[in-house]
Write a protein that binds this DNA or RNA. Structure first.
Lengths: 357, 357
DNA sequence: TTGTAAGCGTTATCAG
DNA sequence: CTGATAACGCTTACAA
């Protein structure tokens, strides 16, 4: 391994000077700098990150705690995180799938000293206490968690509003017998979507509308199974809202396999608006979520919390969602792909800032 | 920040002893250990990773260089990498989207000292020289790169064979006018799939079969556009092979929008077998690839290269692919979802091991 | 503008 | 079984 010492020797300067050249931290004579740069280039030297973070106590890396789930939504979030982080020259250390609190603790602990802050995603309430503890070691930003922590920023999605809008939409289309395929237990996005959908129905007056709730876990196959369950019931719903697009695809696959036509025989709606949604057959009516943007925001909030001048300010951002009406629910939406987006009526991106002390 | 010193003082022992307790590196008296554990617990101490890797010159982390592309395939690969790494208590430092060689170099350099090895994915040939240079700093495993580097393990997919099988399948179904939607320029997977498909057609005797090649970039929308291009041509193909499933979805969306039925009016096939493929309408005939498994293999190869006893051995693994015949090409495949998989005829997972010296 | 040297939090060697 | 102490590679006062 070639160290700063080697470069210093080769260039005939002290290690301090080499360091200054690489950090542009102080003026260095042009000629000296040149010697250093040349020597470093020849030796193929680059500063050791671990040593650097030990002295500066800054790692220029952020940790990302992902949920067990995967698929396009999370892949988009990571992309957003990665891009935003790279722009500020930060690296990202990711860790996913934590079976329980112990694994989660282990994962975060092992990041100790390697990250300047943490983005924690889609944790359930039981993890709140753990996160609160981590917070003493470094700043944290919460993403899609149901809980908030005082002094900690968070980003999330207007799940409730999006699902509410979808409920209203389906009701407006004249559906009375509705069903929802729920997401995984303990998942906040899933719970909020359920709440929002229920609310739309309650508001419509329960007597006139029925709602069947079927379990799901955000996977296509769980959507497929949910459809089978629904078809077994004596009175089949006329519209099914899946708590995410993957399950909606599973639903549509199952209905088609049973010879039902979507939307003529049964309407299907999803949530997330994954890239494929507009190309499905039929194109999927869903709730648009900007996952990429959400990832970027999480990074920006985290970086802001590193900055001493804004350190004590905390923000709670809720990203707007909006209905995207396509053909899977049978409304007369435009036929062409790629032109159907329209702003939703209620959900607005929201930012609440609090300054402590 | 609480350090090993604090714990040592609190427990009335030396830092060496605390270190021994945390590393289980040497026998420590049960009572002493207890004192240390209690003190550490009370202070909420955990070793600093940077300091640790500085002394041990091991970071217990692996770097992952991702391509600009995204979507389910890569998200699956990462999942596979993450799981395998976590099993061995390794962390992963990811970096994606490198516009050019300079960005790539910068990304890898900044990992210096923070990773024990690197998984480099889907790089084009121009990056081969860069990687060769990195190799002097730490072991590298190549994933889905066209090139090989002596002394470096690699994992890839039987793209050629998969596409060849698909070509044969379409020909066997009686198609004479074929089209392929290609993947991004410089992408090896895309190039191999093109080669394999061409080969199947050449083998069939060029005179009888025509092949139109349309550009694409692995995105749904590029598939959509490709379909529009194809439909403008005077003699429309009877079957279109998309170099990945996302583009196949775009194709199907476009054909349906134009009032064509798949597969009755035109057959569509894909590559990758993403989770959704079997639930699409119609279910997509495609080539199955185990992305998750590929990620895991890359990790295992990398970890093997850390082990001094196997250090000098190098493996080249090619993961088998196999045709998954569903309904988008009109063959009489089973109607039910989830039961259609069958092993391909040619592609076999392959492992070539070389021991140097 | 440059060099000296202390120190960042660990681990590992060597005595005891 | 335990403790001193010298690294590890770098940054950063402080001096020159």
């Amino acid at each position: 391994m070639v160290t700063i010492r080697d470069v210093a020797d080769a260039a005939g300067v002290s290690t301090a000077t080499v360091s200054r050249v690489f950090n542009e931290s102080a003026r260095v004579d042009a000629a000296t700098r040149k010697r250093v740069v040349v020597a470093a280039g020849r030796l193929n030297y680059w500063p050791n990150g671990a040593a650097r973070s030990l002295t500066t106590s800054r790692s220029h890396a952020i940790g990302v705690l992902l949920p067990d789930l995967f698929g396009e939504f999370f892949s988009e979030v990571i992309r957003g995180i990665d891009q935003a982080a790279r722009r500020e020259r930060y690296q990202i250390l990711v860790s996913s799938s934590h079976a329980d609190g112990n694994e989660l603790t282990a994962a975060v602990r092992s990041m100790n000293g390697r990250i300047d802050g943490l983005i924690a995603m889609a944790l359930d309430k039981r993890s709140a206490e753990l996160i609160r503890r981590f917070r003493q070691s470094f700043p944290v930003v919460l993403m899609n968690t149901g809980f908030r922590i005082r002094g900690t920023s968070s980003v999330s999605i207007a799940n409730f509003e999006g699902a509410f809008d979808m409920g209203r939409h389906l009701l407006k289309l004249g559906h009375h017998r509705l069903a929802i395929v729920k997401g995984p237990e303990g998942n906040t996005d899933a719970e909020e979507r359920l709440r929002g959908f229920r609310k739309a129905i309650e508001d419509a007056g329960r007597a006139r509308v029925s709602l069947v709730e079927v379990p799901g876990d955000f996977s296509e196959s769980s959507g497929y199974r949910a459809a089978q369950t629904l078809l077994k019931a004596r009175s089949r719903p006329t519209a099914v809202f899946a708590a995410n697009d993957y399950m909606a695809v599973g639903l549509m696959g199952a209905f088609r396999a049973e010879g039902l036509r979507v939307p003529d025989d049964i309407a299907v709606a999803g949530f997330d608006d994954i890239g494929m949604a507009q190309y499905l057959n039929p194109p999927l009516t869903t709730v648009h979520v900007d996952a990429y943007e959400e990832g970027g925001r999480a990074v920006r909030l985290l970086l802001a919390s590193f900055d001493p001048s804004t350190k004590s300010s905390t923000a709670t951002e809720v990203l707007a969602t909006h209905l995207v009406i396509r053909r899977s629910c049978g409304s007369r939406a435009p036929f062409e792909a790629g032109v159907e987006r329209r702003p939703g009526s209620r959900a607005r991106t929201t930012r609440k800032e609090e300054v402590h002390r």
